[in-house]
Amino acid sequence: MVAPLITVLALVLLVPLVRLIMVSGQEYGLDQLIGGKPVRWVGLDNFVKVLTSQDFYDALWRTVKFVVVSVALTIGLGLALAHLLAKVSAPVRVFLLLSLVTVWAMPPIIAMPIWRWLIDQRFGVLNYGLYKAGLLPTRTFNWFAEPFTGWMVITAIVVWGALPFVVISLHAAMTAVSADHVEAARLDGAGAWRVFTAVTLPAIRSTLLIVTTLSIIWNYRVFAQIWLLRDIGANKDSYYTLGIWSYVESFSNKDFGYGAAIALVSVVLLAALSAVAVRHVLRSAADENGS
């Protein structure tokens, strides 16, 4: 039963990973791939090039900023919406949940053209509305002319796409919070905020941690949303995250060795981050079991 599964996993995960590691140690470009020139092993040269490149630190800093902001927004809004779900009447709740699931069901590749149309400089309905409402300085506002507003749009879209999972998970966790506990806290004179921090939050802590960890991992490797939007304005390199940068070096500049090295460094950073987070989650779970 297990052997086929392991074979499949090895084929789809291990083989590409091993190949990626090999290529990262080579000088491997178009000359090698299609020109038939011999592959040259360069040891750790590609990694040295990555780690000594200013582009790397720029991309990393950009990635970190984006992850922190987008995850904070996702979790903050997610908590608020999950809370709202618990308070509204049943029909409204069903409507909200359906809307969330619809967003969830939409693949980014499909959602992006719609977003592009909404924010189009000249024909976008969002631009039109904001301009009419006096919120935009000009009718032909380009969101991607400046990296700051460009990242605002990207963050909004990523958060929009990430919310459903977070809200539904947190909502599920909240419904498990014992009504007796809430009632007891109320009787003891706790206000809404106090009930939330003293009763609800501890009860949903492990779910919250897992959801946050997953959000960090997912947002760290966001690709399609940025890739499909960044060509709207000039200075595309203001939108290089580690993933985009790795793709550009590999597939635009055809420096597969360098691109592979960037990807690996990025994976190692994410793995380290995940290990810390996963450890944290497990420890809190263990503490709860032990208490």
Binding site: L17, R221, Y247, F251, A263, V267
Partner: peptide, 20 residues
């Protein structure tokens, strides 16, 4: 779990090629 995360991340970065 860390190994699993590493593998997933590895798959993701090769998968970003497909996305692209």
């Amino acid at each position: 779990l860390s190994v699993a995360a590493l593998l997933t991340a590895g798959a993701c970065s090769s998968d970003s090629g497909t996305a692209g």
